[in-house]
Design a binder for these strands. Structure first.
Lengths: 328, 328
DNA sequence: ACACATGATGTAATCGATTACATCACCCGT
DNA sequence: ACGGGTGATGTAATCGATTACATCATGTGT
């Protein structure tokens, strides 16, 4: 078998033109059955594989999508990305990944260099002009930004915060703590506002400490909590990671969770149910989000169907486990 | 600004040929200074972006690498992949990801369809003929397979197991348990063998339970451990995930870690230090592994330097935390 | 003055697949 | 029998960038 087999080699082996080979592969119904059989036999015999660059150039399509996330090392993204790759792979699309914060030139080039046909955007903090300048289909997952005017999928973060607050109220807690996400992050802001509004609506005391989703900010907040003269008896953190840090630090300081303080996280990452105590948390259906987002993008790329700006808001789900208990 | 700017448009604006524009961009030293300035001004004025498919087709290069991992949802891979993307992105390479287990046709096409210039392989379980048939530079990370005859980077898994066993021996434990990884996985096999050999060398009792790296197999093993008439006082699991499952299940059954059983994991995933108890574990420098692997691949792609089959084996590092204690 | 080397630039072929348009064969309806 | 329609296939242009080879201008050495 030669190193590189071209469509012309297949055509020669089948005794037809290259156009017929191309058609036999892409539109088999317009090629006669006998001719088609000869072509397929030649493809097998030669081991032909299409040259992607040649096809992409001619068709003006990349057959590839790009996933842009702010910090690919964040384990939160794994399941989303895996689900995206599964759906896109099945649709014959290659999946590229890139950190959304580190290559301004790449971001500027998108839509102009033929590198990707569509974008799955996991970052709501990019400049709107930039995103709108892409002229590619864009679908957002989890984080969103209305200024982009693109569709997005997420859970109802405000309702989720309300659920957390309601759960703690039902357990008899009257003074609650919230460890916030980053102040400039739409998720952090929404979860905080949801918390504050619900606490007010339920007539509960509410204290907010700044945070940034990380374990370190969780640990820091636990130390601040321990110093409070009138400590809240329950905490709702803006992420599971933050909750792990909070709980771990309480443990180190000799406080018990949920005995001294109940804790609710946000995300339901893989380890949450196996943490000690098993973490009560807001479940984020990451695989489902990734799958649906990818399906939307694939659909837009495949059928020339225009993407609407529809915002899909999924009802939240509170996983009640062992990190929350009645107020003592 | 027109929707699509070609190199011919830049050439017209600069009053030179397309060849000169191409040269000004790729080999500026062979173009006169004045001409070069005119070209760069025209590039700026037109907003020109190179067409990737056209360039790739002409140059017979994809400017892209592919990361193949068995289960992209596994959080263990996040830091590796992020580091790979950082290095490759800086070298101007796009990074594609794909699950290594689900698309046989993709795997068969690699090296024949111009989709990627090189492969970072995180799976040692693919058929050797397949891998050797790619005719692309391949670098393995973590998992390896000597039959592929490609370079790899990993920590010394056998030495790591020995360190774990030595640590437990130093704490006075005389009967140890190992929860193994998958029986058909090179990592699982090597860690198990390292464990068994070290226990024998140190004259310690050694019990091995089958596992598969997962939290579920850890929990199952904890239940089996609890039923043992002569329970080992310490356990070494083939992954952190497995350790979390083991510890969590012990906790549920009312056993204390490390009071009733010391536990050592393998990986040092992000949450390990914040688990309760903070997990003693073998550290895997995932970002470093990903970075170095990517650098090797980038180097092979950039300078036409041939990849050697060198196996880089990194010394292991035991992170001693709170999940191990002297035998009581 | 002439020959040679070097730097700069242009022309046109090349990469490999797709597809617009033309051509042919065959069938059906009038 | 003739005309029109349809299915099948071929030719050659197209996609956009790169680069081999040719050409020209200039400088240096003999």
């Amino acid at each position: 078998m030669p190193v590189k087999v071209r469509i012309a080699d297949v055509a020669a082996a089948a005794g037809v033109s290259t156009a017929t080979v191309s058609r036999a592969l892409s539109s088999p119904d317009v090629v006669g059955a006998e001719t088609r059989a000869r072509v397929m036999a030649a493809v097998q015999a030669t081991g032909y594989r299409i040259n992607a660059a040649a096809r992409d150039l001619r068709q003006q399509r990349a057959r590839s999508i790009l996933v842009l996330a702010p910090n690919l090392a964040n384990t939160f993204f794994s399941r989303i990305i895996a689900a995206v790759q599964e759906v896109a792979g099945q649709a014959g699309l290659a999946v590229q990944i890139s950190d959304s914060r580190t290559d301004p030139d790449l971001l500027q080039s998108l839509g102009h260099n033929g590198r990707a046909d569509g974008i799955l955007l996991l970052d709501g903090a990019l400049p709107p002009d930039l995103v709108r300048g892409w002229r590619l289909p864009v679908v957002q997952v989890c984080e969103w930004n209305d200024a982009y005017e693109v569709p997005s999928l997420r859970i109802d973060n405000a309702a989720a915060a309300r659920m957390a607050v309601a759960h703690l109220r039902d357990l008899g807690h009257t003074h609650l703590l919230h460890v916030a996400g980053p102040a400039d992050n739409v998720l952090g802001q929404t979860r905080e506002r949801g918390f504050v509004d619900a606490a007010r609506a339920f007539g509960l005391g509410a204290t907010v400490l700044p945070g940034d989703f990380t374990m370190a900010s969780g640990a820091r907040s636990a130390r601040a909590w321990a110093e409070m003269p009138d400590r809240p008896s329950a905490a709702f953190t803006a992420s599971d990671e933050c909750a792990f840090g909070f709980i771990s630090e309480c443990n180190r300081m000799g406080f018990a969770v949920p005995g001294d303080v109940s804790v609710i996280g946000f995300d339901d990452v893989d380890f949450a149910g196996h943490f000690i105590p098993a973490l009560t948390t807001i479940h984020q259906p990451r695989a489902r989000l990734g799958r649906q987002a990818a399906e939307r993008l694939v659909s837009a790329l495949g059928a020339s169907e225009r993407l609407t700006h529809e915002q899909v808001i999924i009802d939240p789900n509170l996983m009640i486990r062992a990190s929350t208990a009645p107020r003592t």
